[in-house]
Design a protein around this nucleic acid. Structure first.
Lengths: 228, 228
DNA sequence: TTAATTTGTTAGTCATAACTAACTTTTTTA
DNA sequence: TAAAAAAGTTAGTTATGACTAACAAATTAA
């Protein structure tokens, strides 16, 4: 991280790209993140991504070789972590103080994370007494920019008999969030794996005396902490 | 006001122009607001303003004839009032909950007012228990979009012996806000006019046992409610 | 009432950030 | 390993919203 006091001149778009790249690299543990993958994730054309990557390389936030994989510099990571911190603090505020539900917060937080004011976010953090987790169960990076990921696995990676606790869901899609809530799952729900069907990898799970069958795709987007 | 549920597709810039025009028209009670005046206010070139006004006319937010004065349609006013409501609610939140001072809130609120979420602003209003005034003493428009202006006058319009209460300051300039705070003035300060000097219209005032001389320009930017 | 000044408009340019279409390099697979 | 597919790049276009420079209309002042 540079020593110079933060003169964050980045546009909303630049911030979006850096955060997206960070999430693909670090949160999804991808070995290689390419131009088109990033384009897909951000729902823009590969040409747009290519263009932006050039700009971010020139500004020393991204490194990559021609036709090679993308990576973030320390400066790039720092920007991304700060955005994630802002996003998660705002989500927490919306849920805990403004009666937003779990599935409503994403879009608004996506806007709020771009507000530029160091004092605003530090004071919001203090106001909420320094929360550790956001409403989706994700850890909130602290003011120093320290970031860590919960030791979580996808629901789809477990096997019969496993017991786990819901710690997070992939929050990209509003429909998905709604669906998760509707079948009765919530943060910290205890889930037991009853059966994994070989032919389509669908999973029978039990939680709060409810028995449901969920698809592989669903299970890929639900993150849990193994209890047993 | 139109009946259709608000599909606010306006850009940040369009919103800024509508709000600025509203403030020149209604808040400053100007008989005529022209293109260059609006350009000055927004610190952009007259050409930019001319361009934007065309767009806003096409979208039915603004009315004007070529070389004529600018005016807002009901739709335009409604958008502006909602922005002012958002701005003032956020300023109130920043001061009352996040330890911001009077002179720090403007820039951040200027960003926050563009966040698009009806629920966000309604819940923020409820969370603060429906405040009536913002930290500068201005009335906050209610959820129905009802707007009213305090019966206020500038400090410069008073004469010797008058007693008044500070209700607002023109919040466009950070330096000015800082200065007002630094000489010890605050919202609701009782101010007595000791003397108005004819040759330069400077004014000797007394407040909290402090006696100060302020310039005409200063007094033009301080709004008061006459007490006696 | 004409000249000067102010105000408003138009034309053309620039930066940002999206796009499509065409092309090149790399990777996969037959 | 050569052809096909996927991934990445480039060129050129578009929209937004700034800008300057040049010009036209309206207002003010001599």
């Amino acid at each position: 991280m540079t020593n110079k006091l933060n003169s964050n001149n980045l546009t909303k778009s630049e911030e979006d790209y850096l955060k997206a790249l960070f999430q693909l690299l670090i949160e999804d543990n991808s070995a290689k993140v390419g131009n088109n993958q990033l384009a897909d994730y951000l729902k823009v054309s590969p040409a747009s991504t290519n263009n932006m990557i050039k700009k971010l390389k020139a500004k020393n936030y991204v490194v990559s070789e021609k036709y090679g994989k993308l990576d973030l510099t320390e400066e790039g990571k720092y920007i991304a972590v700060r955005l994630i911190r802002k996003h998660r603090l705002w989500e927490t505020f919306l849920c805990d103080y403004l009666n937003f539900t779990w599935d409503e917060v994403h879009d608004v937080a996506e806007q709020l994370e771009h507000i530029k004011s160091q004092k605003l976010i530090d004071e919001l953090d203090r106001f909420m007494d320094f929360p550790k987790k956001d409403p989706h169960g994700e850890l909130i990076p602290n003011a120093k920019g320290e970031y860590s990921v919960l030791p979580k696995v996808t629901l789809s990676s477990l096997t019969e008999g496993d017991l786990c606790q819901l710690v997070a869901v992939n929050d990209g899609s509003v429909q998905f969030l709604k669906y998760v809530s509707e079948i009765g799952l919530a943060l910290s729900s205890e889930i037991k794996i009853l059966e994994v069907r070989e032919f389509d990898k669908s999973i029978r799970i039990q939680f709060n005396d409810v028995i449901e069958t969920v698809t592989k795709k669903f299970a890929d987007n639900v993150f849990v902490k193994k209890v047993v």
